[in-house]
Design a protein around this nucleic acid. Structure first.
Lengths: 297, 297
DNA sequence: GCAAAAGTGTTCCGTCTACACCCATGG
DNA sequence: CCATGGGTGTAGACGGAACACTTTTGC
C-alpha cells in the first residue's frame, strides 16, 4: 500500500461515493466456537450421549454488561478476515489449525446501541481434546454452554410455513440457563423468503448480548445443513473415534435420531486396528477419517 | 441511537479493543446482477439457447480506471446491508422486489490498493423483461456480459484434487472479451480445504477491477449449487415460461446437459392454459412456479 | 441371564437413468 | 417428408428406510 498517496486518494475515493471519510461503520470479526461434550448419563452402562456446545464470554463493560456474548474483536487493518478469526480462536482456546468458515455478515443499523457495527460471523469446529487454554483465556470470564435447537410447532397454509423453535442455552456447570423462542416464517413464493423473529423466553438476568442469538441460530442451521454432505462434524471429535461416538455427535447436532447411521458413514470413515475394550458390551472398532472419501458437491 | 452519548461511548468502545477510532476499514456492498439472455442460434428452427449474463460497470476513475467492475457502493451508516444491496440494484436496473442474497464477505488486506476495503458481496437474480433502466443508469457506462465457467482439466492424487476452469467474459455486443484461468485445489483432509488461484489469460486491455473475478467465481459456484435444491433459477425467467426455456436456463448455468429435465422439475412447476404456437414444432405448454412445492431443506 | 452396544442381513420401495418411442408443427 | 421440440413409457440400477437378527462384553 502506498502510504504517501493514501490520504489524498482515499478522500477522493470516498467522495466519489458521497461518503464522509469519518462516517464509516466499524467492523467486528466474531467467531462461534463449537465443540461437543458428553452429557451425564444416569445409566452407567450406557455410552454417554453427546451435546453440542459453544464458548461464550461474559461482557465486562457496557453495553450488555454482564450478558454473554460470542468472542470477537475489531477487524485490524493489517489482517485478513480469516487470519483475524484464526487469531481470535487461538487466543480463546489455544487452538491452531482447525476448521473455520465464514458464516454470514450481520449489519442491521441498530444491532449495536452505540454506533454502526457490522459483524462478520465465523464458525469454528473443534475437539475438546485439543484445547489448551492459554494466557488470554483469563482476561474475561468464559464458559461452555450446551446449545439445543428444537422444533416445537409447524403450521402450513397456502402461502407460507411457520415453524416455531426453542433455542436453549445452559452453562456446563448448570448455573446459567436461558431460552429463546424463534418463529421462522417461510414464504413459499418464488423467492422462498425466510424471516425469523426472536423472543427471550424467561425472565432470568441471563441473556445474550447484541443480536448474538441471531448469529448463533444462523450458525446452528448452517452446521445442521452442512454435516449432511461434508465431513465437518469429524472436527468435533478426536482423530480416532467409534461409530457410536460419531453418531452421538450427529444426533446432538441434528437434535433427532438417525437410522442406519453406520451404513450412511461407511464411505467417509475407515476402521483402524484399535478397539475400545473394558465396556460392558462388545468392544467397538475405532475409526478415522477416510481421506479418499469423495462426494459430489 | 443516542447521538449525545455516541462520541464518548464510541471511543471507550473502541479503546476496549485497542483500535484507533480512525483506523477502521471501509466497507462496500457490492452486487452481482445475474440474468439470462438468448444466444443467437444459427439454426432458425431451434429454440435459442440461454446464456448466463451479469451486469458490469466501467470504472471511470483510478484505480482500475477503464476496467470493468461489479456495481456497488459504500455501506451507509443509516442503511442495512440488505437495503443497501436492494437500493443499488434499483439504481442500476430500476428493479424492485427481486431475489437477492448475501454471498460472502471478501476482506483480503490488499484487495484495494489505496486503503483497507472490505467488500460484502451479494447476488441478485432477475428477469430481463423486468428491467427498466432509470436515471441512474447513465451515470456510468455499463454492459451485460456473458459469463461461462467450464471445467477443462481435473487431476487427483492421494491427498488432493486439482481442477482447472476457464471463466469467460464476453460483452453482449461482442466488443469485449477476457478470460481467467482458475486453479482449484481441494485438500482431501478432514477440513476439506479449498483454495483457488486466478490468472488473467489474455493480453487484452480488458479485465476486471480489484478481486472481482474472485467474487464472480464464488457467485457462479453458489448459484450452480443452489439451483439444484431451490427454485431460485425461476427468478431468471419471466413469470410464465416453457419447460425448454427453463431447461436452457439450467443448462446455461450448469454448463452441461441435463437429462430427464421435465421429470426433475415436475413438482416445482404447474402448467397453465397458455400455449406457445407458431413455432415449427409442437406447441409447448406454458408453466409457472408451483407455490405449493416443498423440498426438504 | 441381561442390558447395552457392535455389527450384519434382508426386504421393500421409491427414485434416478438411459433410452426408446410417439406426437405435433411449419417449412 | 423432415427437423425439431413436446411429451410419455419403461426396464433396470441404485440406494435409502425399516427392522430383524447375531455377536460380544461386564455385571
Amino acid at each position: 500500500m502506498n502510504q504517501e498517496l493514501l490520504d489524498k486518494n482515499e478522500r477522493e475515493f470516498l467522495s466519489e461515493y458521497d461518503v464522509n471519510i469519518y462516517d464509516r461503520p466499524s467492523v467486528t470479526n466474531d467467531i462461534i466456537i463449537f465443540t461437543t461434550g458428553d452429557r451425564i448419563e444416569e445409566n452407567s452402562r450406557k455410552v454417554p450421549k453427546k451435546g453440542m456446545q459453544i464458548l461464550l464470554i461474559k461482557r465486562d463493560d457496557y453495553p450488555y454488561k454482564g450478558k454473554w456474548a460470542i468472542p470477537g474483536g475489531f477487524v485490524k487493518n493489517d489482517e485478513s478476515l480469516e487470519d483475524g478469526a484464526l487469531r481470535k480462536l487461538k487466543e480463546e482456546t489455544g487452538i491452531d489449525n482447525v476448521y473455520t468458515e465464514q458464516l454470514y455478515t450481520f449489519g442491521e443499523v441498530d444491532r449495536d446501541p452505540r454506533t454502526r457495527v457490522i459483524s462478520i460471523g465465523n464458525i469454528a469446529l473443534i475437539s475438546k481434546e485439543d484445547i489448551r487454554f492459554g494466557d488470554y483465556k483469563d482476561r474475561k470470564e468464559s464458559k461452555w454452554f450446551w446449545v439445543e435447537k428444537n422444533l416445537i410447532d409447524s403450521k402450513k397454509n397456502e402461502t407460507n410455513t411457520i415453524n416455531k423453535y426453542i433455542l436453549k442455552f445452559e452453562s456446563e456447570d448448570e448455573e446459567i440457563k436461558f431460552n429463546y423462542e424463534i418463529i421462522e416464517k417461510i414464504e413459499r413464493t418464488i423467492f422462498r423468503k425466510k424471516e425469523n423473529s426472536y423472543k427471550t423466553l424467561n425472565e432470568s438476568n441471563y441473556e445474550l448480548a447484541f443480536d448474538h442469538y441471531k448469529i448463533i441460530d444462523y450458525a446452528v442451521d448452517r452446521i445442521r445443513n452442512k454435516i449432511e454432505y461434508t465431513p465437518i462434524a469429524l472436527n468435533l471429535l478426536p482423530r480416532l473415534f467409534t461409530v457410536k461416538e460419531l453418531q452421538n455427535v450427529y444426533e446432538a447436532i441434528m437434535g433427532r435420531e438417525i437410522l442406519n447411521f453406520r451404513r450412511k458413514m461407511e464411505d467417509m470413515i475407515i476402521e483402524t486396528d484399535e478397539k475400545i475394550e473394558g465396556k460392558p458390551f462388545r468392544p467397538a472398532k475405532v475409526f478415522k477419517f477416510n481421506e479418499n472419501w469423495e462426494h459430489n458437491f
